[in-house]
Write a protein that binds this DNA or RNA. Structure first.
Length: 423
DNA sequence: TCTGGGGTCCTAGGACCC
DNA sequence: TCTGGGGTCCTAGGACCC
């Protein structure tokens, strides 16, 4: 069977989302910042042209806001998630089999489309997505996922391709591999790129010409899979249904350095509640909860500390109340006074479906009561917005809150102005 | 002053068992 | 004191992705 994959990805996705709702930003340099307005995580083409790099700390480029009319936005994930759904829904009209690979990327199974004019079809997809959602996209089509990635990258880079590239002819595939630097290949990160270049493998084409045994020896079976994929042998299938997550993590840097147990507990309790909500969304429970804390590694004058503690809970749970309880115990075990803390996080693992929980004979928790309480809380959250109802440990001072000074309005959602309720 | 967050997969090595 | 092979499970660490 001959395989054929499309990879559609949104150009400069977060920056494009901000533009959809404020067209006056078109043609101007735009960046979107990470949580806490820490560093740059998305750039419009104009921002790239100013020399701004992915991951640049915002404080180092802040001067460009004034001097180069740079527009900077705090990240607004609710908006981006919503726009992502619209793009994915539009794409799924063009083939029944799609894999949402990330918030801004989607693989399309085009295995049944060999007899249509792929070039025209690709353009139809691109035009429709842009017309219906306002988000510009690029589309690469090729016989394997890794080659579709190559095609997508060139589609974006080449002025001639202008956002669409179909790679089905061996000659075109070879030319594309030759034009792709090894560090730009999907699955080749910084370490492998350095290693491969030391062995005179500078392009994707060089990589396909290396021996499989040599690659297995130095890059494990993952490298071998990539080798096959780039040579046109499809090894990676389309994963239409996302498998349930094996671990869920919520962690943030604080808006400022914290030192008291109470402040850090408030933040950590909130992260525990977020993990519980993520678990409920995927209808599962977790048995292990890990809490970590750390100081700011960039503050060279501060004494540094990192520690984590994992607790195995008696029964797997997805209740805010229980997770906060055990997260608190974990935090108590690792918290040390007189440090300036910058970040904490909660990780839940050993995740099982809600319906397959091992109960404990000595369990004293009224689980039915917890479950119905969580249902009520989720219902209120859905109606009135996030953080309107929560467990008291999450506190009201919120001195740990993230900085988010440049956030755009919630264009696609509306949060009612309701008072916060504690339980 | 100010440097993100959330994931996956693979391997090597140690502990332990028969 | 010396001697073997094979299996499983767990963990830490390293690589990668967006």
């Amino acid at each position: 069977m001959t395989t054929l994959f499309g990879l559609c990805d949104c150009n400069n996705f977060y920056a494009s989302c901000e533009r959809v709702f404020d067209p006056s930003l078109n043609g101007k340099p735009v960046v979107v910042l990470s949580n806490n307005d820490g560093c740059v995580i998305a750039r419009s083409n104009e921002a790239k042209a100013l020399g701004i790099q992915m991951g640049d700390p915002f404080f180092k480029i802040r001067n460009l806001v004034e001097h180069k009319h740079l527009h900077a936005f705090s990240s607004n994930y609710v908006l981006y998630g919503d726009m992502s759904d619209r793009v994915m829904q539009t794409l799924s009209l063009f083939t029944p089999n799609v894999e949402v690979y990330s918030i801004d990327e989607c693989f399309l199974d085009l295995g049944n489309f060999y007899d249509v004019n792929l070039f025209n079809y690709a353009w139809e997809i691109k035009r429709t997505v842009t017309r219906w959602t306002g988000i510009p996209v690029s589309l690469g089509i090729a016989p394997t996922k890794a080659l579709a990635k190559v095609a997508n990258k060139l589609a974006k880079k080449s002025a001639k391709a202008n956002g669409v590239l179909v790679l089905t002819e061996p000659y075109h595939i070879e030319k594309a591999l030759e034009a792709t630097k090894i560090e730009d290949v999907w699955g080749v990160g910084r370490q492998y790129a350095k290693f491969l270049k030391n062995h005179h493998i500078n392009t994707a084409l060089d990589f396909t010409n290396a021996s499989e045994n040599w690659i297995r020896k130095h890059m494990t079976v993952v490298g071998v899979r990539l080798h096959k994929e780039l040579r046109g042998e499809s090894c990676l299938e389309l994963d239409e249904v996302a498998p349930p997550k094996k671990g869920i993590c919520t962690s943030r840097s604080f808006g400022k350095k914290l030192t008291t147990f109470e402040d850090i507990l408030e933040a950590t309790a909130s992260y525990a509640a977020k993990c519980a909500k993520k678990l409920r969304n995927q209808k599962s429970c977790a048995k292990l909860v890990t809490v970590f804390v750390q100081t700011n590694p960039f503050s060279e004058n501060d004494r540094q500390y990192y520690n984590s503690k994992t607790i195995c809970m008696p029964v797997a749970t997805n209740s805010d109340i229980e997770l906060i309880h055990y997260a608190t115990l974990s935090l108590k075990a690792i918290f040390k006074p007189h440090y300036w803390y910058k970040k904490s996080g909660v990780i839940v693992t050993e995740i099982v479906p809600e319906t397959q929980i091992q109960f404990d004979l000595l369990d004293t928790v009224d689980r039915d009561k917890h479950n119905s309480l969580m249902k009520v809380m989720d219902g209120l959250t859905d109606r009135f917005g996030r953080s309107k109802v929560h467990v008291a440990a999450q506190g009201i001072s919120k001195s740990w809150l993230l900085k988010s000074d440049y956030k755009s309005p919630c264009y696609t959602t509306r949060l009612e102005d309701m008072p916060t309720v504690f339980i």
